[in-house]
């Protein structure tokens, strides 16, 4: 279980997250939606302990950390059991897509890392791109490369920030299928997406953030029947923008 309780995050005097409670169960997909600047990525980074919360509690399985935290965070117990695919991808530019995925496995002394990576590459049907460098492929293909890197780690918690932003419909559908397979395998997934339809079809739980506050959460049914005016307005704006 990945759980955040009363998560607050400030940069200087500015508080970005105002006490958020979120609970992500194994074998479920939680999708965070919300307008730009609502704190989605900040929440994701806080839960991933990359930018630990200013205050609040993060629980990852049997590891509970209350912030502010006096001692160093035992991140070796967290990563890559929990891993992240970032919106900007951050593939290492001096390595090919395959090497990007193999390097972390090799670093962790995993047997036959190439075989594990090649299988995922094959599943995604991007064999022809695997030996190219990140700047030699399109943004969508880089996104797949970043997802391959994360999946090769076989995480129990996978946090994905706007991974579908540059993908065409075919790839979005393929990734959705892959995420559902992971869910069936017991992986807990936390997605940030601006695609309401993607959220509707992927999410077991939808979380709507606005202004650093969790405004509404529930099953995808809340997208059809929002309880709060803010979510209703947001959905209306998304609909208008189409």
């Amino acid at each position: 279980m990945l759980k955040g309780e009363n998560i607050r995050k400030s940069y200087g005097d500015v508080e970005i997250l105002h006490g958020i409670d979120i609970n992500i169960q194994p074998g479920t997909i939680t999708t965070i939606i919300g307008p730009s600047g609502s704190g989605k990525s900040t929440l994701l980074r806080s839960l991933a302990l990359l930018d630990p919360p200013t205050s609040g509690t993060v629980t990852i399985d049997d590891l509970t950390m209350t912030f502010p935290h006096d001692t160093p965070i035992p991140t070796e117990l967290v990563w890559p059991r929990l891993t992240v695919v970032f919106q900007q991808l951050f593939l290492w530019p001096h390595l090919t897509l395959r090497q990007n995925a193999v390097l972390p496995l090799r670093s962790r002394d995993i047997d036959s890392p190439e075989d594990r990576v090649d299988q995922i590459i094959k599943d995604f049907g991007i064999n022809g791109l695997a030996d190219r460098f990140p700047n030699e492929v399109s943004l969508g293909q880089r996104q797949l490369g970043a997802i391959v890197r994360a999946l090769a780690l076989e995480p129990r918690y996978l946090l994905l920030d706007e991974i579908t932003s540059a993908l065409d419909v075919e790839y979005v559908a393929m990734i959705l299928e892959r995420l559902k397979t992971l869910r069936e395998q017991g992986v807990a997934l936390l997605l940030i997406s601006h695609l309401i339809e993607f959220a509707r079809h992927s999410g077991d739980q939808i979380v709507f953030l606005d202004g650093g506050t969790l405004v509404e959460q529930g099953t995808p049914a809340i997208l059809d029947n929002p309880q709060s005016g803010r979510l209703e307005r947001f959905l209306g704006l998304v609909l208008e923008a189409r």
Binding site: A48, L50, T75, E76, W79, P80, L82, T83, V84, F86, F90, L91, W92, L103, P104, S107, R108, R149, A150, L153
Partner: peptide, 9 residues
Amino acid sequence: DAAKVSGMS
């Protein structure tokens, strides 16, 4: 960051 969350030392 990408290397950290990939579990690299």
